[in-house]
């Protein structure tokens, strides 16, 4: 159960990576650090205004959207002519800067973060269920459904899917690819902020917190990078694996399990569980 809960947070992180990847074909190395910064901002609101947690969540989401918008407009957009590799290094530089800036603003200390859900076990018959796990799973699923609806039924969602499929064709159809870039950065950051607020009570709030995003990468690859349902399933699989592997496997290899699984899946099914390898074009 707690495996599924962590898994659903990984799934959110994977989704936020996939959203940007689909629109711009680049990996955002700074995703984890953006998530960390927005959670810190939400926490600051919590401390300063004694606001309820829901307000903190909203503040975090808004902060994330703002940060993403600013970064996209001031930095990423200027690298639009650059290669994917250059953009990769830019987001890497961003991740270093954001982590360091967080340390300067909030110190590198760890802080407790309140949870929406209590940690006392609820007894349901003989089964003990932690409300935190249920809550996290529920909240994540709700957000995923909302995302699904957005992609399916809104103009923006259709535009984003079109750009993901074929950028040139999308442009010819009158879609502003630049706006889709901005929108996907903002959307991804917002999803990341929710993931941040959900995972902060578990891993605690610190400048190092962004490193959990590596699990988002793994989840996204497991599911087949670029596929949204794949990202969700990949996240769940990874969470459960991490949860169960230490129970059944010898200590010497348990920590490598997620990576071994990832390598195996990549080798056996290069497109991931759900992805398809696009046919090569000349």
């Amino acid at each position: 159960m707690s495996g599924l809960a962590t898994g659903s947070i990984y799934a959110l992180m994977a989704l936020s990576l996939v959203i940007i990847y689909n629109a711009t074909r680049t990996l955002n190395f700074a995703q984890g650090e953006m998530l960390m910064i927005s959670t810190f901002v939400g926490w600051t609101a919590l401390q300063l205004l004694r606001a309820p947690l829901l307000v903190a969540l909203l503040v975090a989401v808004v902060a994330a959207a703002l940060l993403a918008w600013v970064l996209e407009r001031t930095i990423i957009r200027h690298a639009i002519s650059a290669t994917h590799f250059d953009v990769l290094i830019i987001t890497l530089g961003l991740s270093l800067m954001l982590r360091s800036a967080a340390g300067l603003l909030w110190t590198h200390d760890e802080f407790p973060f309140p949870s929406f859900f209590g940690s006392r076990p609820l007894g349901v018959g003989a089964v003990r269920v932690a409300p935190a796990s249920l809550g996290i799973i529920g909240a994540s699923l709700a957000l995923m459904l909302a995302l699904g609806a957005l992609f399916r039924w809104t103009r923006l969602g259709r535009a984003m899917r079109a750009v993901a499929q074929n950028q040139r064709a999308a442009r010819l159809m009158g879609i502003s690819v630049e706006q889709v870039y901005s929108a996907s950065w903002i959307l991804a950051a917002a999803v990341g902020a929710v993931a941040g607020v959900l995972i902060a009570p578990v891993v605690f709030l610190s400048s190092q917190m962004g490193l959990v995003a590596i699990n988002g990468f793994t989840a996204a690859v497991l599911g087949g990078f670029g596929s949204m349902p794949g990202a969700v399933v990949g996240g769940m699989v990874l969470g459960v694996l991490e949860n169960l592997a230490p129970l059944y496997l010898p200590a010497s290899i348990k920590h490598s399990v997620p990576f071994l699984v990832m390598i195996t899946i990549l080798i056996v099914r290069p497109g991931g569980l759900f992805g398809r390898v696009a046919p090569r074009k000349v």
Binding site: V203, N215, G239, N243, H255
Partner: peptide
């Protein structure tokens, strides 16, 4: 004796064991 890796997100299995 159960080990935990630096920077983990989940120690539930170790605690259960």
């Amino acid at each position: 004796a159960e080990s935990v890796k630096r920077g983990v997100t989940d120690v539930s299995a170790q605690i259960a064991k």
